[in-house]
Simulated assay, not measured.
Amino acid sequence: MPKETIIAATQLWLEKAVIGLNLCPFAKAVHVKKQIRYVVSSATTPESLLEELIAELRTLQDTDPEQIDTTLLIHPDVLTDFLDYNDFLDTVDLATAEPEFNDEFQVASLHPHYQFAGTKFDDIENYTNRSPYPTLHLLREASVDRAVDAFPDADHIADVNIETMNKLGHEGWEKLGLK
């Protein structure tokens, strides 16, 4: 599938679900300012994805946040199985903890088959993290800290999202027309 198609599907999901449903109250500002970098990985193995992840972390580190504040590393050809993807997140945590990154970053996980612990696969709250393709969302800690400081009750975002999704239901999600 062409990279443009993958990015377009991801942007549509971001606009309709993440921003449209206000699942992440911090997403709209960086989207409007065009500070999101969309990268479609060519990786076909976890090892090559890790190399691309490290390269993207370095790119963020070397770029002014006013230009690129966050990166969506979309990897459609590797870690398509959610359990394999979930296991890979331990490797991601180790990579971001490397001294060269000095705790500057965190990575949020998004996947078409995302499933929170203790839920059933089709539970609607899992859809808060269901992106069209497996995606690693690279975030600057400083940006997250600023956003959390500016947002009252940031600790309750997950609870509000579950409530939003329960009100929306599967039928409402399907009406969004997302992959």
Rank of each mutant, 00 (worst) to 15 (best):
V40E: 07
R37Y: 06
I36V: 15
D145S: 10
E98S: 11
D84G: 00
P46K: 03
L60E: 02
N161R: 02
T63V: 05
G172A: 11
L110V: 13
F82S: 00
E98N: 11
P132T: 03
G20V: 07
I162G: 03
P25W: 07
F101A: 14
F88D: 00
L110F: 15
P76D: 09
L178V: 11
D84F: 00
Q67G: 02
L72S: 10
D159C: 04
G177W: 14
D69E: 15
Y114N: 04
H137P: 03
T80L: 02
V40T: 10
F116R: 08
T135S: 04
P25M: 08
H113T: 08
K28C: 07
R130T: 04
I36R: 13
D103A: 14
V144Y: 13
S41F: 06
E52G: 12
D123H: 10
F88Q: 00
H111E: 06
F105A: 12
S48N: 14
P112E: 12
P99I: 13
T91K: 05
N86Q: 07
T59D: 06
F121E: 06
N166L: 04
E125C: 04
Y114V: 06
L50A: 14
C24F: 08
A150C: 09
K179N: 12
L12D: 03
I162T: 11
A17F: 05
N129F: 01
I54N: 05
V32E: 15
H137Y: 05
V39Q: 07
V144M: 14
Q106V: 15
V32Q: 14
A27L: 12
R37L: 13
M165C: 04
D93P: 02
N22D: 10
P112I: 11
D153T: 06
I74K: 03
I162K: 10
T164R: 08
T80F: 03
L49K: 06
L94H: 14
E171D: 15
G177H: 09
W13V: 04
T71K: 05
Q11P: 02
A27I: 07
E174C: 09
A27N: 07
R140D: 06
N161Q: 02
Q11V: 08
D90E: 14
N166M: 08
G20D: 11
M1I: 13
A97R: 15
A108M: 12
H75M: 06
G169W: 10
F88A: 00
T135I: 01
T128Q: 01
F151V: 03
R130I: 01
L176N: 09
F82K: 00
T71R: 05
